[in-house]
């Protein structure tokens, strides 16, 4: 809660604060609040997925059912978009989905840091996908992978225009993928913070109004947190599919 009289920027919540300073050579790899949020995320995912399935019961408990639902959800997503080829990438897509989803959800806890609201993190994740998919494309099709940028059935004089557009759209994939997630998280949390500021700064009873709004927005944010993780996962699946099936 903001102390009275202090000016608080809505962006202050994204400030990275080192918890313990670690330096290797000239590189600063301090354990920060962002790293702490990642740690909590990883702990939550591993503990949940391990403990709920620990009994390995054929008739699942409610919690085990949640784990199985998540498993089936991503498995279905991969089969629908990539087909049988996609099974190999299931652990990666599942990890990506869970990491982004729980990262977003951890960010919804008050006073917790949202590491997915940092472009460097989302860009790194998107780059892994992009580089991985490009390598996969070259492994599957060799030099023919470049025909991905060639759209068949288009008049020949359009190609000089279309091929650069295709190349640019392909290269902008990591940017669009990372900015989409980052911007959504940034905007959502900023909006919440702005409204939270209104609750404090507005006169006594009128403050209830933005408070109500915050409650509604929090619900929306939780939806967006899920939706963005889903979008991240489904786009990854589509990119993997592109690496298998050119135009």
């Amino acid at each position: 809660m903001a102390a009275k009289g202090e000016k608080h920027s809505p962006l202050e919540q994204f400030e990275i604060v080192p918890i313990s300073n670690i330096e290797i050579g000239s590189y600063n790899i301090s354990f920060t609040n962002s790293s702490f949020a990642m740690l909590i995320t990883v702990l939550l995912i591993t503990m949940f997925l391990t403990l709920t399935v620990n009994t390995r019961s054929i008739i699942p408990s409610r919690l085990q059912l949640i784990s199985e639902l998540m498993y089936n959800f991503i498995a279905q997503l991969l089969t629908d978009t990539v087909g049988d080829n996609g099974k190999k990438y299931f652990p990666f897509v599942f990890t990506l989905f869970m990491f982004v989803l729980i990262g977003n959800m951890v960010g919804m806890i008050p006073y917790q840091f949202t590491f997915t609201s940092h472009i460097i993190v989302t860009f790194a994740l998107a780059s892994i996908v992009f580089i991985g998919v490009t390598i996969l494309g070259f492994i599957n099709h060799g030099i023919k992978f470049f025909t991905f940028f060639y759209i068949p059935g288009v008049p020949f004089y359009m190609h000089p225009l279309l091929i650069p557009i295709e190349v640019i759209s392909y290269l902008s994939r990591p940017i669009s993928l990372s900015v989409r997630l980052f911007a959504n998280m940034l905007a959502g949390h900023t909006l919440l913070k702005v409204f939270a500021g209104f609750v404090v700064s507005m006169p006594f009873f009128t403050g209830v109004l933005p408070l109500t709004f915050i409650v509604a927005l929090t619900g929306l944010e939780i939806l967006i947190a899920f939706l963005q993780a889903y979008v991240f996962a489904i786009l990854t699946c589509l990119y993997i599919n592109d690496a298998y099936h050119l135009h």
Partner: peptide, 13 residues
């Protein structure tokens, strides 16, 4: 903190 974030992201992921 770019390096730190990338490092810990790599570790945890």
């Amino acid at each position: 903190f770019f390096i730190s974030q990338l490092f810990w992201l790599f570790v945890f992921f």
